[in-house]
Design a protein around this nucleic acid. Sequence first.
DNA 1: ATTTATGCAAATCGTTTGCAAACCT
DNA 2: AGGTTTGCAAACGATTTGCATAAAT
Lengths: 144, 144
Amino acid sequence: MTDDLHGAVGVLLGDDGQRYTVGRRNLVEVLRQAERPLTAAEILEAGSLPQSSAYRNLAVLESCGVVHRVAGTDELARFELAEDLTAHHHHHLICTECGLVSDFTVPDSLESDLAAVAHRVALETGFRAEHHRLDLLGRCVHCG
Amino acid sequence: MTDDLHGAVGVLLGDDGQRYTVGRRNLVEVLRQAERPLTAAEILEAGSLPQSSAYRNLAVLESCGVVHRVAGTDELARFELAEDLTAHHHHHLICTECGLVSDFTVPDSLESDLAAVAHRVALETGFRAEHHRLDLLGRCVHCG
DNA sequence: ATTTATGCAAATCGTTTGCAAACCT
DNA sequence: AGGTTTGCAAACGATTTGCATAAAT
């Protein structure tokens, strides 16, 4: 029950003065079992909380850094566990046909280049980059 | 009046059996003058069409490849002229504080690497990448 | 003349919020 | 008890749509 993930989530919530309730554990579990970002609708189907609780708790988890909000090409919000809590840094494949979002990773050398670019841009524009987002847009295997 | 841009837009619309009406020209002009992606609200303020016409025409322009929809971190839809119609390929700086989206470019060498990654991913996952999206997320000069 | 675009107002959809009851410590 | 979270139902805000009129070819 008390494995690494839930322990880490508990700490993040606690740091923020929040409780790790049953509903929140439920959400984390649903997101853990998904191998891709889920829409609110998918989460509602998979979990067993009312809408308002799901949305409210996703917001809490997001502000504590447990959950991350992912932008696709449609207007639906999608959520995944923060990278700190899961294996590793990854990027998204976004299907422009059906909206499906899935994960992929890139070579470390490319990640270094991206970091260098972020640094250059900061110098040139005064924008302070904290993260980057690299997505491939196209047709998923289904919509190919 | 009939400069390159409007000519090109007219062709794209025509190819799709659509007319280049006053309202559509108005939208293209508003987007041309902006140096960054605009939200629907900003477009409504700048242009002079009713909401429904603006949204409907943005949808038409998008499906003809004249306008491109940009995802930020907030839920607001943002629009810009398609890259084919403007100078060049670019990426976005997205402020996580105020949502502002602005443009930047990266070295060609990085673009080549991105293309190579897209190709590799296609082989490995069967996903057909058509475009990519590289955004930097952080604080803009204002919200720094 | 016939097809397509417009503009108003009403509807829709995802998401958020007010409030009273249930929960945790 | 004291403050937080829950769950229902109602509210919200951005975007979309029905329909009758106006415009374009």
